[in-house]
Design a protein around this nucleic acid. Sequence first.
DNA 1: AATAAGTAAATAAACATTTACTTATATTTG
DNA 2: CAAATATAAGTAAATGTTTATTTACTTATT
Lengths: 200, 200
Amino acid sequence: MRPKNLEKEQAIKTIALDIIATEGLENLTMQKLAAAAGISPRTIYIKYRDKDDLLIKLFIEEVLGGYEQAVLQGFDAAMSLEAGITKIWLNGFRYLSTHQPAFALIRHGQASPLLVKAFQEHNITEGSYFKPIHQFLQQQLAAGNLVPLPFEVLRAMLFAPLMDLVSEYFEHTVRPQQVITEDVLLQCCHALIKGLQRSR
Amino acid sequence: MRPKNLEKEQAIKTIALDIIATEGLENLTMQKLAAAAGISPRTIYIKYRDKDDLLIKLFIEEVLGGYEQAVLQGFDAAMSLEAGITKIWLNGFRYLSTHQPAFALIRHGQASPLLVKAFQEHNITEGSYFKPIHQFLQQQLAAGNLVPLPFEVLRAMLFAPLMDLVSEYFEHTVRPQQVITEDVLLQCCHALIKGLQRSR
DNA sequence: AATAAGTAAATAAACATTTACTTATATTTG
DNA sequence: CAAATATAAGTAAATGTTTATTTACTTATT
């Protein structure tokens, strides 16, 4: 039996992400992808059932999987509030700012019904992504270090700004100077913690 | 000369937004839109040069225009930091939570290169959307009420969480209870202000 | 009567996916 | 231990459908 060519397998993923980042999800086509990867359209269908299957696996496994791994590097749910949030911010920023195509797909994942649905279902069947972060916040809540808000609300407050700052980071690669520096990130992160910390 | 049928003009916009909200930007087609609006495809081309023109005008004029107007209702750049931000948050939430299709297109506007580019160009040629907010933040900075961060950074910090909270609001219409209440919004808003207020 | 607004149907290109065939290798077989 | 075989991986080209946009015509109003 002829073995799989892993280079081609990787090329499909990498080039699909590149097309999505530069042209948008709405302009990714199977024939364009195959041509750019130097393979036959049929080869994509050996590895993925159809286009939706490709997009969902790209989003859930390739992108969110890689992001999760990067974000949790050196993170421990037992960390202090400030140390934990800062670690997550810096890990997340380092990953996203060096993986623009992955970031682009994550943004599509907040807009496209197909990907929104896939994410919801994944979180139901496989348990939540970022379980350690969930646990971390739950502990901080229990210890009375955080204003008592539902988990989804804390998640939005703590991490939505980071995504927008990464967007700004990429928009500024074209502009004269980079506004999103590590110092700015740390200031933002600190401000969020200060705002959400329970005053006792 | 036969006059324009304004109902059809409005139907194109409304139904396009509906399709984008339920099926995604990548599944909006001119023929599907025409059929759903009960008109001929040709009629769309009387009002818009091509599909990109339709999408950009829908995004910039219809959606962002309406959002801006709603957000600035009763807002005044001379308000206090807390009053101003709170006004914007409540205005924004009220509009977005009652205009799901508009919100859906705004989310696509953060992901789709076509719309990202259109937004950038619009901000350059027409001056920034939300000019009063820009002015408000500048004044608060000058008065030393805000931690000194670039405008784009403040914008991300102050308004990105609101968008994610609106997403949560819509996800919860399916779930047993609504987590995103006015009280939660006010707490979030207050936390952000507390974090970004300059301590003197 | 003039004319822009509108329609139904057509067009050519692009689309997701399949068909019919070829190739590379692991495993058997002589 | 090589040659033969089985078989999944792969290709090129085709399929039927859907796509954005246009053509040729009709309609409603000034």
